[in-house]
Each structure stands twice: as C-alpha cells, then as structure tokens.
Simulated scan of single mutants.
Amino acid sequence: MREMKVIGVGAGNPDHVTIQAVKALNQVDVFFVLDKGEVKQQLVDVRSEILREHAGEREYRVVFGQDPERDRRSDAYVESVDDWRRRRADVCADLIAAELQDGQVGAFLVWGDPSLYDSTLAILDDILARGELTFEIEVIPGISSVSALAARHRIGLNQVGRPVQITTGRRLAKSWPDQVDDVVVMLDAQTAFTEHTDQKADIYWGAYLGTPDEMLIAGPLAEVAEEIVERRAEARRRKGWIMDTYLMRRVPTELPKDL
C-alpha cells in the first residue's frame, strides 16, 4: 500500500517546521511539488530549503508537476475553483501513478497548515474516489499564517468572551460578519478592508509572513488602510505575487453577560 503524507510546513520560515513534521519528512521517498511558474519560484525555493535543512542526507526524490492555471475572472467562483481542483487532481494522479511505487511514501509540503484554505486534501480525496489509485493519507499539522500573524503582532485573535471568525476577502467585501467583532481575513485579492473604514476598528496586517520579505502594519483601520493598499501594491509589482492576511478588530457592540 502506498502512503501519502500531507505535511504543513509553516508560513515561510524553515524554523516553523515542527518536530513531528521533521520526523515525517525523514520517512518520505518522493516529494511532489506543483510548479506555479517562474513568478512564484520563491514558493518552490522555500520548500527546497526546508528539505535541505530538515530531510537529512538520506535518499529521496523531488518530482515536479505543472500547476494548471485557474480562471480568476469567472463570476462563477465556486464552479471555477471546482474545475481548477479537478485539473490539479488529474496532474497529481498522474504523478503518483508514475512515480510512487507500492510500499513507498509520498508527500506534499503544504504552505501553512493543511486545514485552512488548502486544496491538497480535497484533491487526494478526489483521486481516491476515482478508484484507480489507493493509498493511505496522514496529515501533519503546521503553523498557519493566522498563527504567525498573531505572533508577529503579539496579540490574541479574540477578545475576552468573544468569538473570532476566519473568512475570505470575497465574503468580507459583501459585509462584516454578523455578531462578530474579530475577523481574520485570508485570500483577499481586492483589499476588502477598504470597504469598512467607517467602522471603529483596528487592523493587524501581515504579508510574506515568516520570510525575509515580511511586512507588518497595525493601527486604526481608517488611518492605515491607504498605507496597506500602497505597500501591498508596490510589493506585488516588485515580486509578482503576494500572500497576506489580516485581523480586523472593533470594539464589541455589546459586552458578554456570561463568561
């Protein structure tokens, strides 16, 4: 039986790799990497650095597949993501079938944590559902960009007795979540926080967390929103890509009655 490990490797710093992940890395025969092209070569380079530092001098192979392009202009967002995942599953299934022998261990190194807005587990489930390949799956949790953001700003994610919600920029652009004062936002390509500068809220923003290019800005949303927009745009022009997340926090509309 083949085995696939889905290993969370943190937000970009090789020191984010946990001891559990290091042990898992040293059990792998074949590492699978989806190449996102020259613009995002740094994402591949970080994975290579993690392997050099933590996978030891044992023999293993690194196999690359071409990550299919995703239609980001479609109004049918869910359908376009489903289509993209299916095409990714096609690539991964071919790689696993060709490169991973019975009794061997393969792995995908997942940026951040596999549990949070990552498609790897869904892709592997898709491959298994097709019935052409069989393998066991083990998931190794990692340090997410959300954890890294809170640590770098030296804050907790929630206020006393209050909930916190993790959402996307697409949903935040429509409205601030009901009955939630602390909102963590990921996958925000359109700077949706600018739609809420009328709120009495603070923002804690971070980009390229855990890497030498890390950027941090915090302050009242109405005062720092423009600075974040400008620095984000400049960084994207310079590097060709950006990965960022942020927490928006407003004063609770009503204090908890029971803690």
Rank of each mutant, 00 (worst) to 15 (best):
Glu3Ala: 14
Glu3Trp: 03
Met4Val: 07
Met4His: 07
Lys5Asp: 00
Val6Met: 15
Val6Pro: 14
Val6Asn: 13
Ile7Tyr: 06
Ile7Asp: 04
Ile7Thr: 05
Val9Met: 12
Gly10Met: 07
Ala11Phe: 13
Gly12Phe: 09
Asp15Arg: 14
Asp15Val: 06
His16Trp: 10
His16Glu: 05
Val17Met: 07
Val17His: 05
Thr18Tyr: 06
Gln20Pro: 00
Gln20Asp: 06
Gln20His: 03
Gln20Cys: 01
Ala21Ile: 01
Ala21Pro: 00
Val22Trp: 03
Val22Ala: 05
Val22Ser: 03
Lys23Cys: 11
Lys23Arg: 15
Ala24Val: 05
Asn26Asp: 08
Gln27Glu: 15
Gln27Lys: 13
Gln27Asp: 13
Val28Ile: 13
Asp29Phe: 06
Asp29Asn: 15
Asp29Met: 03
Asp29Gln: 02
Val30Leu: 09
Val30Glu: 10
Val30Thr: 13
Phe31Gln: 04
Phe31His: 03
Phe32Leu: 15
Phe32Ile: 06
Leu34Trp: 04
Leu34Arg: 00
Lys36Leu: 02
Lys36Glu: 04
Lys36Phe: 01
Gly37His: 06
Gly37Asp: 07
Lys40Phe: 01
Lys40Pro: 00
Gln41Glu: 14
Leu43Lys: 07
Leu43Tyr: 12
Leu43Arg: 10
Leu43Pro: 12
Val44Asp: 07
Val44Met: 09
Val44Asn: 09
Val44Cys: 05
Val44Leu: 10
Val44Ser: 10
Asp45Phe: 11
Asp45Lys: 14
Asp45Trp: 10
Asp45Ala: 14
Asp45Pro: 04
